[in-house]
Design a protein around this nucleic acid. Structure first.
Lengths: 248, 248
DNA sequence: GGTAAGTGGAGGTCTTCTCTCCATTTCTGC
DNA sequence: GCAGAAATGGAGAGAAGACCTCCACTTACC
């Protein structure tokens, strides 16, 4: 991951160990959890292997292209028949749940971390950057959190817990005079939406480009500034044209 | 349309008449143009009426929900059978072309206008605001310009003409020290994409919300600032939740 | 090596889209 | 008014694609 070198680009200063640990955990897939977590009749070796293959493939394909990828395609990506997918996960929803249920909780972790920063602005930037990293990169997770229908229960519960925490984070940074005073917690999903859209649009050809606009937006969020934070490289004309000239 | 009262919110100062005239023209539908513009065998009265009904309905429905609305739905919205739509327009592409071909050209008009401003920053803001108004509000037009497949030829041609003009507009504002110097013309479609995503997400429940983030982004684009431009009202928690709890 | 568990993928069912066809209705010139 | 050309609407053909089931065959385990 590229690290642009601007004024709000070192969010983990003073908390790097906590942050790093969490980041690592996000990548893991919980291979223990079954479709119905209560039942645990011990899988045969090949079955366990295939279950993991499906989870890995689904994680990749959902992250890249969102939750409306068909299970046939997940099966193909896993090198497995559709039947196998359905034998292991009763439903598409069950698969999504197995993949994302715990990851969604990470947002709470980020919020808690952010409140522990001494500098309120750094805490705010930490939360924004973590939340964006999580949701912008992973389109499936973003779908689950923002357009739930699958995660519904879990996502709504998490939002209910996180929103007041985000309000606190924002108000601390505002009280410190670093953050513009008209930002509210409800803006965060909109920022995710905006940067997610760039990521969806240019993702395949330039996966880091969205961060250019994250920096731009942070320069809009700061209460005042004498100059600007340098942006990462812009897209080339060719790449933009290529992204545009492709199916809806 | 709500007019937030910030520092970069009066783009048409000193050019209001030109701007207003153009804006009015955008709303019109050219009822003369036929599917194949060369042929003009004079339509029967009812046919002409229905043709216009289809165009009007299609304009509305494409603007609201993008180009992947089915022609059955356009027909229903027009109060007409699908057969009638296909009798008048050989193809979905033909309908889209008839609707948008000339509107796309408006981007060129905006660019020309913007270059005529005495104050380079005001010219830049004028262009950005016009271009966003045009494309964010009208999802169909945005689809045609950004994800062409339909408008392909026309959109590509327009982009080729406009890009150098936008570069000039941007460089003038940068030379005047008002615009951050790392912005390039290729960023404009990304800004459209970002705000378009907010509009798609919250559009039905809060059609003007995207402008809140337009102001935020402009505060990120300005070279430096002592304070911030006030944002329009944030979405309520309930409205955001409602937008989230709805199908993908 | 017997058997229960697991597998793959053809295909059933459903939905949704584009576009055609034609019996019926509506305009228009005389 | 009326004849005939023009136009209409909507059922439905055809294609695509999604979800999920079924079952003849294969594989792992004791």
């Amino acid at each position: 991951m590229k690290k642009p070198s601007g004024t709000h680009t070192n969010p983990s200063a003073g908390l790097s160990d906590v942050a790093e640990t969490e980041t690592a955990a996000i990548g893991l897939i919980d291979i223990q959890s079954t479709d119905t977590p209560s039942a645990g009749p011990k899988l045969r070796a090949d079955a366990a292997r295939n279950r993991e293959r499906v989870l890995t493939a689904a994680a990749k394909v959902f992250a890249d292209r969102g939750l409306d990828v068909s299970l046939d395609e997940v099966a193909r990506a896993a090198g497995v028949g559709v039947g196998t997918v359905y034998r292991r996960f009763s439903d598409k929803e069950a698969l999504v749940k197995a993949l994302f249920e715990d990851k969604i909780e990470n947002v709470v972790v980020f919020a808690r971390e952010s409140m522990m920063f001494e500098d309120p602005w750094e805490g705010f930037v930490h939360f924004i950057e973590r939340a964006l990293d999580l949701q912008v990169q992973n389109r499936g997770l973003r779908d689950a959190l923002l357009h739930s229908e699958f995660g519904r229960a879990g996502a709504a519960r998490t939002r209910a817990v996180v929103t007041p925490m985000v309000t606190t984070i924002i108000e601390r940074a505002q009280a410190a005079g670093r953050l513009r005073s008209d930002l509210v917690a409800e803006d965060v999903p909109m920022l995710v939406t905006m940067l997610g859209a760039v990521s969806d649009f240019m993702g395949p050809s330039d996966p880091e480009l969205w961060q250019r606009y994250r920096v731009l937006i942070l320069d809009g969020l700061v209460a005042q500034r004498a100059g600007w934070t340098p942006l990462s490289n812009p897209p080339s004309r060719e790449v933009v044209d290529a992204a545009m000239t492709k199916p809806l």
